[in-house]
C-alpha cells in the first residue's frame, strides 16, 4: 500500500476550498485528531485515513502580538495564535480591536480573505 502521490495535494486542495469559500481542516478517522497545516498522513498517529471537514470557525486567542510599523509603512498590525475548536492552532490576524489590544483568551470567529494567497483571519466575538 502506498499513499496517493499525484494530482492536487492537500495544500492545493486547502487553497482551492478557501477560494470556494470553505475553510477546511483535516481530521483523522483513526485517532480523531485534527491536523493543520494540511498533511499527506496524520501527524499524530501516522494513519492515512484523513478526511477533510469544514471547520466550525470558532476559536480562542492563545497568544497575540502587534508588529509595530511607522504609519507611512502601513502602521501596526496584529499577529495572533488562535486555537480552533477542532484542536489545531493557526498563526493569524485578529480584527475587531486595535492591534495591541487583542485579549488572550478572547473568543474569535474565522473569516476567509481571498487573493494571491487565500487565508483565514479572525474577528473578535462580541457578546
Amino acid at each position: 500500500m502506498t499513499l496517493e502521490d499525484r494530482g492536487p495535494g492537500p495544500d492545493a486542495v486547502y487553497r482551492e476550498e478557501l477560494l470556494a469559500g470553505r475553510f477546511t481542516i483535516q481530521t483523522c478517522a483513526d485517532c480523531g485528531l485534527a491536523s493543520f497545516p494540511p498533511r499527506v498522513f496524520c501527524r499524530h498517529c501516522g494513519s492515512d485515513a484523513l478526511t477533510r471537514v469544514e471547520a466550525s470557525g470558532h476559536g480562542v486567542v492563545y497568544s497575540t502580538s502587534a508588529v509595530r510599523n511607522r504609519p507611512d509603512k502601513g502602521g501596526d498590525h496584529n499577529v495572533s495564535l488562535v486555537d480552533l475548536a477542532e484542536g489545531v492552532r493557526m498563526l493569524t490576524r485578529v480584527d475587531g480591536a486595535a492591534p495591541t489590544e487583542v485579549p488572550i483568551g478572547a473568543r474569535v470567529k474565522a473569516r476567509i480573505v481571498t487573493g494571491d494567497v487565500p487565508h483565514v483571519v479572525f474577528d473578535l466575538v462580541t457578546e
Partner: peptide
C-alpha cells in the same frame, strides 16, 4: 510559508514575542 506569510509576521521576533505574551498571561 503560505500559512504564515499572509499575516506579515516579523520573524523571528514575532514568534518570540508570542511566547513572551503567553508567558506573561
Amino acid at each position: 510559508n503560505p500559512y504564515e506569510q499572509p499575516y506579515k509576521p516579523r520573524f523571528p521576533i514575532t514568534a518570540y514575542a508570542l511566547a513572551a505574551a503567553r508567558h506573561m498571561h
